[in-house]
Amino acid sequence: MITLRQAQDRGQANFGWLNSYHTFSFGNYFDPQHMGFSHLRVINDDTVIPGAGFETHGHRDMEIISLVLQGTIAHKDSTGNVKELPAGEYQLMSAGKGIYHSEFNASKAEQLKFLQIWIQPNQLGEQPGYQQKAFSQNEGFNTIITPDGANGTLQIKQDMQLVQLILDEQQQATWQADSNRRYYIHLIEGELSLGNDITMQPGDGAKIENVSEINFVKLNEKRVKALLFDLV
C-alpha cells in the first residue's frame, strides 16, 4: 500500500528569516493524521536567509539528521564541535541525555536550504554524539545510515536505515523490500513514479507498507534524488 503526501499539503511556518515546510506535525503546525511514521518523527524542509539561523537551543533523546541542499550550515554544539556542513554532506547528531547547539547560514550573501530529520531513538539517556560525512553521488542506492555503522555508514540508535537514491542516466531502480517493514520516500528533486499511478514531485512524500519490492521510475530527463527510509 502506498499513501502519497503532496508537498503542497505540508504545514508551513514563515518567520521571515526562516521558511519551513513540515511533513509531520511540528511547532505550531498540528495535524493528528500526520504525527510521524514509525520512528520517523520530523522532516522539515528549511530555507534560511543569509546570515540568519537557529540560536543555541537544546534537544534530548532524539537522532537528528541534516542534509544541506544548497549553501552551508555553520554548526556549534555543547560537546565542542564547531563544524561547517556543505551541500551534499550528511550530519547525524545524537542528542542523548542532552545537547545544545546552534545552526546558522554560513553565507552572508546566499540562502541556505536543508532538510532536518528527526528519528526517535531506541536507547535513551545515552552520551551525545556527532557524525558527519560526504557520501558518493553515484547512481542507484547508496546506504547512508544504519544501526551498526557498517561499511562506513553513519550509526544511528534505531532499527532503521536511510538510503539515498539517484537516477540520472539510469531510468529505473528496484528496492527489494521486506513486507514486515515500513518505508518512507521523500523526493528531493526530479519527477518519480512508484507505479499504480503514484507520481511524485519535489517535496512529496510517500508511506509504503506491505510490499515486497518498490519500483522507482524516472519520468523525464531531469535527475532524480530521493531519500528512502527503511523502518520497523
Rank of each mutant, 00 (worst) to 15 (best):
A13C: 03
N14E: 03
N14D: 14
N14M: 00
N14K: 03
F15H: 15
G16V: 12
G16A: 12
W17E: 01
W17D: 09
L18P: 00
N19E: 08
N19Y: 08
S20P: 05
S20D: 08
Y21G: 02
Y21Q: 05
H22N: 03
F24V: 05
F24S: 03
F24Y: 14
F24K: 07
F24T: 02
S25G: 09
F26I: 01
F26E: 02
F26Y: 04
F26P: 01
F26L: 04
G27E: 04
N28D: 07
N28P: 07
N28A: 04
N28S: 08
N28I: 05
F30W: 11
F30T: 01
F30G: 06
F30H: 02
D31W: 12
D31C: 09
D31Q: 04
D31K: 15
P32L: 04
P32T: 14
P32A: 10
Q33D: 15
Q33K: 15
Q33C: 07
Q33L: 15
Q33P: 12
H34T: 01
M35C: 01
G36I: 10
G36V: 06
F37L: 04
F37K: 06
F37Y: 15
S38Q: 13
H39D: 13
H39C: 14
H39A: 14
H39F: 15
L40T: 03
L40N: 09
R41T: 04
R41H: 08
V42D: 04
V42G: 08
I43R: 01
I43V: 15
I43T: 05
N44F: 05
N44D: 02
N44K: 11
D45R: 13
D45H: 07
D46F: 13
T47M: 14
V48F: 15
V48Q: 07
V48N: 07
V48W: 10
V48M: 13
I49S: 09
P50I: 00
G51P: 10
G51R: 13
G51V: 14
A52T: 04
G53N: 12
G53V: 08
G53H: 06
F54H: 10
F54N: 02
E55V: 10
T56E: 14
T56L: 13
T56N: 03
H57T: 06
H57Q: 09
G58V: 01
G58E: 00
G58A: 15
H59T: 11
H59R: 08
H59K: 11
H59E: 05
R60W: 06
D61A: 05
D61L: 06
M62W: 00
E63A: 08
E63Y: 10
E63M: 01
I64M: 02
I65W: 07
I65C: 00
S66M: 08
L67H: 13
V68G: 07
V68W: 00
V68E: 01
L69T: 09
L69M: 09
L69K: 10
L69E: 04
L69W: 11
Q70W: 11
Q70E: 15
G71R: 10
G71S: 07
T72V: 14
T72C: 08
T72P: 10
I73N: 00
I73F: 09
I73L: 08
I73S: 06
I73D: 03
I73T: 01
A74V: 07
H75D: 05
H75T: 02
H75L: 09
H75R: 02
